[in-house]
Every structure is written in C-alpha cells, then in structure tokens.
C-alpha cells in the first residue's frame, strides 16, 4: 500500500514540475503594436495582472481547464527583421536576379508562461492537455502546413550599395491565463498566447553602405 501511495505521489510530483517557458518567433519582432489602446502581450503581464486574472478564473474543478481570455483577437501591426538580400562591396555594379523563397509554416504561433506547455505533432503545434479547445475554436482551425513561393527580383546593385527587403505585417493576438485541475488539484498554471499572422508587407530598399560602420 505504501508503495502505491508513494507511486501516486511521485506521479503527481512529476506532473507539478515547472516546465520551461515556450516562446515563438513573433516575440523576436522589432516591434508589435496593438491597434487599440491598452493592448497587452503576455510577456508584458505583470505579477499583479496575473493575480487579477487568476481571480477571474472561478473555483476549482474536478478535472480540466479553467481559462480567462484577456485579449480576444486584438489586431496588431508589427515590424519584422530586415532581410539583407545582397550587399555589393565590389567596384562594379551587379546586375542579376535574386530570389527568396517565401515559406510558411508558422502563421499561427503560440507562447506560454508558467507551466503551461506547448506540444508539437508533425507540423501542428498546440497547447498541451487540450487547452486549445478551451480558448478559441478558430485558433485550432488555422494550423498551416507548408506553402512556398519563389519570388525573384532582378535589380542592379551599384558598388557600395546594399539591397534590403523590409518586412512589416498584421495579425491578431489572443491571450489569457489558465489553470488545469486533476482531482481538484491545480496541476498547471500560467498564461497562454496565440498570434495569428494574416498579412506581410514587403518593401525594397537600396541603400549606400555606411563606410564608417564597415570599419
């Protein structure tokens, strides 16, 4: 009997272990701006925000999730990294075509805090323990697979000039907090966030290389 009790305790202890925080590519963007004043990313939740949102969750339950949605499909704009396609450091112009492949495998990106986990199955990522089904039906339908397009740009790049592609875009943020219960025991606690990328805007810029920066 002692062994059984000990095993159960070990299993529960294992379940309660804090898992690492998962983050997605969108959190590395240069800037993310909410269209509406007061928008908040999960990473910007303060300790008191968490406490306030946890209070809104309601009482314990026998089994499953209790969640609160704080931002619900809030439109955002963002600026991504600038892609350097080519830099001509030579003495004669380069006149050729360059191509970049646009691939999509992450139009829906997830991040989580606390010990809420993210699971990956093939190309599909989701929150662990079925959290997806509890937060927004639309999210689970928008898992993308692969889409690829080869875009060529034929341009002359003069000496001492860089050809850059700047990337901006739009999307939606949905986030909130949740607690997962087993036998009324709180097994997982934390925040979750879903970023849905809807549109990317590309611009071409040719710039003279700053000689001072190269030294």
């Amino acid at each position: 009997m002692k062994k059984i009790v000990l095993s159960i305790i070990i299993v529960f202890a294992f379940m309660m272990v804090q898992s690492s925080v998962f983050a997605s590519e969108y959190l590395t963007y240069q800037s993310i701006r909410f269209d509406r004043f007061g928008g908040q990313l999960l990473r910007d939740y303060t300790k008191s925000d968490y406490e306030q949102y946890y209070d809104m969750l309601g009482g314990r339950r026998f089994w499953g999730w209790r969640t609160v949605t704080v931002m619900n499909n809030e439109p955002v704009t963002f600026q991504k990294e600038t892609r350097y396609v080519i830099t001509n450091q030579g003495t004669s112009p380069i006149n050729k075509s360059y191509h970049f492949r646009l691939t999509e495998s992450s139009k829906v990106q997830l991040s989580a805090s606390g010990n809420i986990g993210i699971s990956t199955s093939g190309n599909v990522r989701g929150f662990s323990l079925g959290l997806d089904a509890n937060i927004d039906g639309r999210i689970s339908n928008e898992r993308s697979t692969t889409e690829e397009e080869r875009v060529e740009i034929r341009m002359k790049v003069d000496p001492n000039t860089a050809l850059k592609v700047a990337v901006y875009g739009e999307g939606y943020i949905t986030n909130g907090v949740g607690k997962y219960y087993r036998f009324f025991i709180n097994a997982r606690t934390g925040g979750w966030e879903v970023f849905v990328l809807t549109t990317e805007y590309f611009s071409v810029v040719k710039e003279v290389i700053d000689e001072d920066l190269r030294r």
């Binding site: 646009l102 139009k107 740009i153 034929r154 549109t199 805007y201 590309f202 611009s203």
Partner: peptide, 13 residues
C-alpha cells in the same frame, strides 16, 4: 522594373 511581391496575405481570411 521587375515585379515584386508587396503584400502576402491569407487570401481567404
């Protein structure tokens, strides 16, 4: 001037 993709969106969003 060669064509360039300026907008890439979900066409059925």
């Amino acid at each position: 001037v060669d064509d360039f993709l300026f907008i890439r969106t979900k066409p059925f969003h």
